[in-house]
Nucleic acid binder design. Structure first.
Lengths: 330, 330
DNA sequence: TTGAAAGCGCTAACAT
DNA sequence: ATGTTAGCGCTTTCAA
């Protein structure tokens, strides 16, 4: 009812002890105190509904229990489910997420990171291909706060890391295409290449070293733009390095009155939710995106708990999900 | 380079003035000071690269420049673009977003809101159908922090509000269907009905009072589940109260080997990005989702600037986007 | 076993 | 025009 904030002082007064005692007892050091005192303090706290003020606490150097998250584009299904995974795992441990959207824009990302740092986040989870190492280092150095780099880019040797098995993903896609009897294949390569995407490509090229490589933007419209060339070159099957790209190809094909998979087989990457709903349903390499987020959060929580343990790298498995966008030619 | 935090004291020393002077000058009260002093202080700040500590500032009762955002499901395209709009507008004014995902779960939402409150957010932007009024009020009362309720639910008369013209949206959909010659129509109604969705329905029913109403969950799988009944009842055209629902219907239809729009016309709501990429491209009522987010953020910023101005309600226009999922029968 | 007191970095009222 | 000082709510030595 009454909106007054109850402070530690009131609890102390009510319990008839000093504020120091209250602080101690309420912070896990109860064992050093007379059980009776403990009792009184806890009772007082409960009666008054006392909750320690987060901000005051941070000021004295405690954790903020807040993690900064930076993604390039929350609107992208991949990142939104990633964020969901992170956010849920974090909240479970009492951490909260501060989200920033970098928009693939270096300057904005830097600003966002700085703002996050100002608010005293305990750590950063960063998934952004365009963030530069220098910015990262700069932000990092302001205070010794842990960073977890996700998927998009390797960050030297100074952080934990979670990735998926990109190389294998590429391989899986290629093998499937080969098995289905395709030989004249292409792969769409983003102009803004990141480490993990390159691994996918490498995996793919193991089976199809001669594959036609077409560069474009890693987005729906990027995919759409590439259809003309695909058709000109008489490509049978194309490996899109992301589902987004594949969806763009779908649209491009429809606009040219061509059909998938008759006129062109396409295989995507990510296994975003919409893959099932698109026509024909998109065959794709599934990354455990939600799990990726959870793992990242988990790593962060562990790191915060023991800041000096050696850096960890986790790699999550991928798998092929066969649906209807690849023609069976044999 | 050096990770030490530079405090106001060092700036003061360097400039040869007191910390109070520094604080004043750096907080817009420079006009009361000797230009020379101002000069010195600013120089000192720049040389040292001083940035006021956010937390210390908050402690003395300043704003945190942080807004708490609660959405039910960030994974949903509608909410992710909403969040993007909010986040971008906020960041532009130096505010940062703390995002929580409610997951349509009252308890989790409450927890999230409480965590946000603990971190001293200046205000809340809440878009969640399942949040109860009591929880909202409770959180609100802890401190007098403004709330903006978005879309999903009206929150008594104690907050600003942004919505879109839902009634008109429903009307638009109905009129189009009628104009295209459809008479045997259905509308999918979510079992968890929110105010704005009800308006859509009402608008639709103006033109089709006798429309078949089918209840289901407001999600892709909800849409999928409803296809059987649609077919049984020989419905010609269906109004899905959200694009998600429509996508579900697409899948359901494909599974039954039926085609859209030949066997069933469908019209969606929201105009999520995927509408263009789905086959056939989905005709839908477009809400300016991104704009909705921006407006909400804008409202919040204004409210924070003048806490006592009268509450505002903005309603944004919607429009019909005609694509290929409705059959032209005339 | 408990309490007094010194900050954390900043702002704002009050002196000078 | 500028400096002094008292907090904000909490944690943490250090003494008692």
């Amino acid at each position: 009812m009454c909106a007054k904030k109850v402070t530690i002082r009131e609890v102390a007064k009510r319990a008839g002890v000093s504020i120091a005692t209250v602080s101690q007892i309420l912070n896990g050091k109860a064992m050093n105190f007379n059980p009776l005192t403990v009792q009184k303090v806890q009772a007082a706290r409960d009666e008054l509904g006392y909750k320690a003020d987060h901000l005051a606490r941070q000021m004295v150097g405690k954790q903020s229990k807040t993690i900064g998250i930076l993604v390039p584009e929350i609107t992208n299904s991949f990142f939104s489910t990633l964020v969901k995974g992170i956010e849920e795992e974090l909240l479970r441990s009492g951490y909260i997420s501060m989200l920033c959207n970098g928009g693939f824009n270096g300057a904005k990302e830097e600003k966002a990171l700085l703002e996050l740092a100002k608010r005293g986040v305990d750590g950063f989870i960063i998934a952004s291909p365009s963030i530069s190492d220098e910015v990262l280092k700069e932000v990092l150095q302001i205070k010794k706060r842990p960073v977890i780099v996700l998927d998009q880019k390797t960050f030297s040797e100074r952080s934990d890391e979670v990735t998926t098995d990109d190389f294998n993903g590429g391989l899986l896609a290629a093998r499937y295409l080969k098995k289905m009897g395709h030989t004249k294949v292409a792969v769409i390569v983003p102009d803004l290449a990141t480490v993990n995407i390159m691994y996918r490509l490498q995996g793919f090229l193991v089976e199809f070293p001669q594959a036609l490589q077409i560069k474009t933007e890693l987005s729906k419209s990027g995919g759409q733009a590439v259809v003309a060339e695909l058709l000109e070159q008489n490509i049978e099957a194309v490996f899109a390095l992301s589902d987004e790209l594949a969806f763009g190809i779908y649209l491009g094909m429809r606009q040219k009155n061509k059909s998938i998979p008759n006129d062109l087989s396409v295989i995507g990457y990510d296994d975003v939710e919409m893959c099932r709903y698109v026509t024909p349903a998109l065959t794709t390499v599934a990354q455990p995106i939600y799990e990726l987020g959870k793992q990242a959060a988990d790593l962060m929580i562990k790191r915060l708990a023991s800041p000096n343990s050696p850096y960890v790298k986790r790699v999550l498995p991928v798998k092929l999900v066969i649906r209807s966008s690849v023609e069976v030619k044999i």
